[in-house]
Write a protein that binds this DNA or RNA. Structure first.
Lengths: 221, 221
DNA sequence: CCCTGAGTCTGTACGCTGTACAGAGATCGA
DNA sequence: TCGATCTCTGTACAGCGTACAGACTCAGGG
């Protein structure tokens, strides 16, 4: 392998992703531009193209980093019932991603295919195998779980201002209730009658409710 | 109510949404700009701001239109078992949205809160009540179903080129399998072993599989 | 040791974006 | 007919992603 000549790199992929993540957290999703990232690491905008082919690649790396921040040790801890382990990891990932409302938009734009996401999938398959699912069922179930996870988080994040940190859950629910109070009860009787429940869609409680039913359905099969 | 004076409007919200939808289908998501929409309806770019406060509002209306294109008559047809009715509507919506890969990105950026989406929710609540769920459970279940629906569609669409119409399902699965063949089997044995199943995540078959398990979990409760 | 060539970074530039602002023209009620 | 009011246009701004050309920095071969 010939060593490549040229000056030492002044940056690293990690530094770039870190800068992007910092901007994401502090100034929101719209503030993450090639120029702002470059400014953050003290470099001309185009320098980033030495490390990533385009902006989408940077964002994919950001998402993978966020996913990677979620520890997967819980998955392997056999002293805890496997359902609870899935719950914990799901809750952790959800919290982590909702902390960066801007990031969630990215999540579904480019699917989780980074190394950290692969690792996540593999560990999830471990747990599902442990739960007694066949190889094929485990694979299908893992995808279904990821769909639910990302879908929930995305729908929750959609209600958030991507430019600001997420307000506490109670506030978010209260805010949402106001929206449902405006629904005309004649045209949409059921929706209006369940407005309280619907306002609480955006809550940990509902998230776990759905997750539990889904897991039930998956292992019952 | 005083009638507002001024010249007759030369456009309508519908015309604008229609133009956006046309662009979306023909030239992909990135081609939908205020300028291109305005060009399509033969008007200066800013004229659109008379009808919509900003671009996001246009896109929300586009999504609602797509949702509205899915007929909900099936939901009400009591000669068909309710599970099958949910299946059919879900499949219809999925097909409709995957036909516009660019649109799906929008779906989760701004949640379904348009009138057509409300209608959809209400009819879904009807069916779930018919299935024997309590008011609260039906509300929660409907949200969980929507999460699954949108999550599935989003993850499928994420693999598609938003600038082109979707290729047939077989091609998409084959394309994906190539990606999984590159997964190192030592580090990710389960992932590698299930590569075939995973490639088929992006398929009607898997979509229905997950939907069925989810519905099972929801009504079992 | 210097030279060559590859790799990294900068400056500049292009075409595009969303949309704010000012004003022209059309149309109504009075 | 007048004035108010609304719709649409022209222009403009700041920002975007990124292509291109070139300057600089270095490692290895002669």
């Amino acid at each position: 392998m010939p060593v490549k000549p040229g000056p030492k790199r002044s940056l690293s992929e990690e530094a770039i992703v870190g800068a992007a993540l910092k901007l994401l957290g502090e100034r929101g999703g719209d503030a993450v531009s090639m120029r702002s990232i470059a400014g953050e690491v003290g470099v001309a905008p185009n320098a980033i193209y030495t490390y990533f082919p385009d902006k989408a690649a940077v964002l994919r790396a950001v998402v993978d980093r966020l996913v990677g921040e979620q520890s997967l040790d819980v998955f392997a801890d056999r002293t805890v019932p496997w359902r609870r382990r899935i719950q914990e990891v799901a809750l952790g990932l959800r919290a982590r991603l909702l902390d960066h409302p801007g990031a969630t938009r990215l999540l579904l734009g480019a699917p989780m295919d980074g190394p950290k996401a692969l690792e996540f999938g593999e560990r999830l398959l471990d747990v599902l195998a442990e739960a007694g699912l066949s190889e094929e069922d485990a694979a299908r179930a893992s995808y279904t779980l990821i769909v639910y996870l990302l879908g929930s988080i995305a729908l929750e994040a959609a209600e958030l201002d991507p430019a600001k940190p997420a307000p506490p859950e109670e506030e978010r629910v209260a805010e949402r209730r106001k929206g449902f109070e405006a629904v005309p009860a004649q045209a949409f009787p059921r929706t209006a009658a369940s407005a309280d429940v619907m306002a609480a869609y955006i809550s940990t409680d509902q998230f776990l409710w759905g997750l539990e039913r889904l897991v039930d359905g998956l292992v019952r099969g």
